[in-house]
Design a protein around this nucleic acid. Structure first.
Lengths: 342, 342
DNA sequence: TGTTAGCACTCTCATTCATCGAGTGCTAAT
DNA sequence: ATTAGCACTCGATGAATGAGAGTGCTAACA
């Protein structure tokens, strides 16, 4: 549908605009050697591209800037991911060599590095503990009336919670209860724990437990956690580098959004298929992101996607660079995490 | 040193400026009833106050604004903390009633509430786990080569870490090792664990352990944590509400600073004495805070200070309100935390 | 002696206006 | 199909202007 030449011109406009953040004029393109036509010819093509919706004009006598559709076409058809500069690869490696052996911390660091390599804001969604099974459960008394409950999953993730011990239960009863749980519930997916308890071992509990109700209260307290899926941000202030956000009123909705954890989680969770995904402007379905693009990728443990990393920048974003950085990143993270958990 | 009238005028200027963010003129003060002098008289006093360094003039023909010294005087001598509006007290209570029974999470929430009540950015330094003693240690195997180490402190804080198990050690050896630790190390302050191990039970270990070196490797891995002293921010974007930070160039250093965790920790740690502390402008010893004030307070567990909360706003800050909110907050937090930990 | 009225002066801010230049669109020539 | 040429548009820049807010000073007043 688009001629060779149109594609070339579109590409040049986008790549120029990505760096200059200024509307691109016909003369600029013509001078750049790459294409050997006069400004007038280019003007004609640009006019056509505008009619087709790939470009737009801020006002009558300015150059053209890419439209959302233009970026989309660029990402889908014109982009050949630039390789990483060797400096970048080195930095990447260095960061991961430093024995980051605790999962949570690694994820957090990832956000930092990702942001510093791309110069945009990064969003990282910690590993979602889905389909994770109980490996071990334990209750450690602190006082007569409180205790720490510890749940360990088969992936090595640990959740802990301080619970208050209902009056009337004896220490023996508690340890008996925990013992039963460890005997019968290990291997059960975390999100099924509750129903499994009710369906399968209720009767057994009733038999052993004198204070059945209190024990159940305790149990419910323990399960009320769900710590998973935390978000880490990196380089929030990097947004300020972008000329399009020099205006406070543009800035505010963005910062507000980044502060609302839930929104960010929702945003990152929209990535369904594995691989790298680019969402441009309003494709994100959030008004506050209408001038932003979000590049996301999933990372895996043992080939199963467990989390998402993302880079948030202006629609005028260096897609090639970001995409290649993301690719490397997702791979490295997946490797590391997999190695970490078996 | 300052006459009654001068103090009154200074106070009025500050309180006006805090809300208007505009230089205050003599007529404005005169009109306000509070003081029954003509603009001209007030002008004279203002001129004196400027000579004394309590006020400054943005330019020749503008009103006056308080100087850093002016704020300092105000905070030290003129401030009578306004009580909390009952709405605020209610919100405060509501937040804490909702079973926040996990320490970490409570601290995090505190940042949110603090910010929403003051309309400034809040900084909260999580409880510093000093002088905390080991209550229980456990190692849960995941695979042959990895395990999760769990340390529970006497305050109910849980730290966990995935460790790799050195080749050659048997399961029995590990559980024997853990058993020894639990027998001999419980009650030892966390930061003395290492030295205690070397000084006291090394010989015992040598006797029981076939693979002594490997066990020590494992132990060192376990101790390499130190998770304490995390920072939580609330309402970062609130800075944008302040007219003095509408300018991106003023904004950037601030956001940069807030993003650097270490800096924030350092900032909050500068509070030595318990109680509420107000640091105005450059008193913070950070260039990026020259137009900001920081109100901090410590919170306690059993009367011992363990952490700091802070509110960051422009020097033109509603000190009275912030201070009273902070007071209530620090108290409530201390109560809660103390109750939580025995 | 402390207070006030009056007035000239200063400085900022918003508005207006003219100018400049980048860039387009169209037409006619190649 | 391409290009040169030219009139035209529109934002950005900067100077000029006037209004408004507020001061500092002087002289009058209680």
């Amino acid at each position: 549908m688009l001629s060779e030449r149109q594609q070339l011109i579109l590409q040049m406009i986008i790549e120029d605009y990505v760096h200059s953040a200024e509307p691109v004029g016909s003369r600029t393109i013509s001078k750049r050697g790459q294409v050997k036509f006069s400004p007038a010819t280019i003007r004609n093509e640009m006019s056509d591209l505008e009619d087709l919706g790939f470009l737009e004009q801020p006002h009558t006598s300015a150059g053209r800037i890419p439209s959302q559709k233009g970026y989309r076409f660029y990402v889908d058809h014109l982009l050949n991911p630039s390789g990483l500069a060797s400096v970048e690869v080195m930095e990447l490696q260095k960061m991961y060599v430093d024995t980051i052996d605790e999962m949570e911390r690694m994820v957090q660091q990832t956000a930092q590095i990702l942001s510093s390599l791309t110069n945009y804001t990064s969003l990282v969604l910690g590993p979602q503990v889905q389909e994770v099974k109980l490996r071990h459960i334990q209750l450690i008394p602190l006082t007569e009336r409180s205790a720490v409950a510890i749940l360990v999953t088969d992936k090595g993730h640990v959740e802990n919670k301080t619970v208050s011990v209902p009056e009337g239960i004896s220490t023996e009863e508690i340890s008996k209860f925990v013992e039963i749980l460890n005997k019968r519930m290990v291997g059960v997916p975390m999100n099924h724990l509750k129903s499994r308890l009710y369906s399968e071992i209720m009767s057994e509990l009733r038999r052993y437990m004198e204070h059945y109700d209190e024990v159940m209260t305790l149990f419910n307290q323990i399960l009320q956690s769900g710590h998973d899926g935390r978000v880490y941000l990196g380089g929030t202030a990097k947004i300020l580098n972008q000329p399009e956000f020099q205006n406070i009123d543009k800035l505010r909705p963005l910062l507000d959004m980044l502060e609302a954890n839930d929104t960010v989680i929702q945003l990152l969770n929209q990535q369904a298929a594995p691989g790298i995904q680019v969402r441009i402007g309003l494709e994100n379905e959030m008004e506050s992101l209408k001038d932003c693009s979000l590049v996301t990728a999933t990372y895996q443990i043992n080939g199963k996607p467990v989390g998402t990393i993302g880079v948030l920048g202006p629609t005028r974003m260096d897609y090639g660079h970001v995409i290649s950085v993301m690719g490397h990143f997702a791979n490295r993270m997946s490797e590391q995490l997999t190695r970490l958990h078996k």
